[in-house]
């Protein structure tokens, strides 16, 4: 098989998030708080993709991410797939889908929102997923895809 296949399944156990939009791997790491975990995390940026030019890949060893945990990365990379690896084999492959609410991930883009002035866990309701429209549970303002990208990078 190709070299790339090897690269993707090169971890023994854990989770491979594949088909991340090029350059967005670091945002994925941020959203999933992978910078705060003890597991080994490997970031591969801008590798050739069969589907669309280049893509990013994030691998987390020895940890199976739950669907709810990863769903919020659909905010910045809706085409991403989540592969669960056991003994070098892909035992489960899922697409990401935006959940109904997004908690504790995004800051609100409204500067006069209370969540930007007090220690409050942000909550957004997903009103539409394509194109993305989120409504802040507190200030009731909406955020579009461009606002999300602006705050998540």
């Amino acid at each position: 098989m190709s070299k790339k296949k090897l690269k993707v399944s090169a971890i023994r156990n854990g989770t491979v998030i594949d088909h991340i939009r090029p350059g967005k791997a670091f945002s994925v790491v941020k959203i999933l708080h992978l910078d705060e975990t003890d597991e080994t995390v490997t970031i591969t940026s801008r590798v050739a993709s069969k589907v669309s030019g280049t893509k990013d890949i994030v691998k987390i060893e020895d940890r199976e991410l739950l669907t709810e945990e990863v769903s919020s990365i659909a905010l910045i990379s809706p085409e991403a797939t989540v592969n669960i690896i056991k003994e070098y084999e892909v035992i489960d492959k899922r697409n990401v889908r935006l959940p109904d609410t997004i908690e504790n991930i995004l800051p609100c883009s409204n500067p006069v929102c209370i969540t930007n002035h007090e220690p409050v866990v942000t909550v957004f309701r997903v009103e539409r997923s394509r194109p993305i429209v989120l409504r802040c549970h507190y200030c009731e303002r909406t955020m579009q895809e461009k606002d999300v990208v602006k705050v998540l990078g």
Binding site: N110, V112, C113, C139, R141
Partner: peptide
């Protein structure tokens, strides 16, 4: 009554 939006919800 509060000048920040979402304050009453909080």
């Amino acid at each position: 009554r509060h000048p920040l939006e979402g304050s009453a919800r909080l």
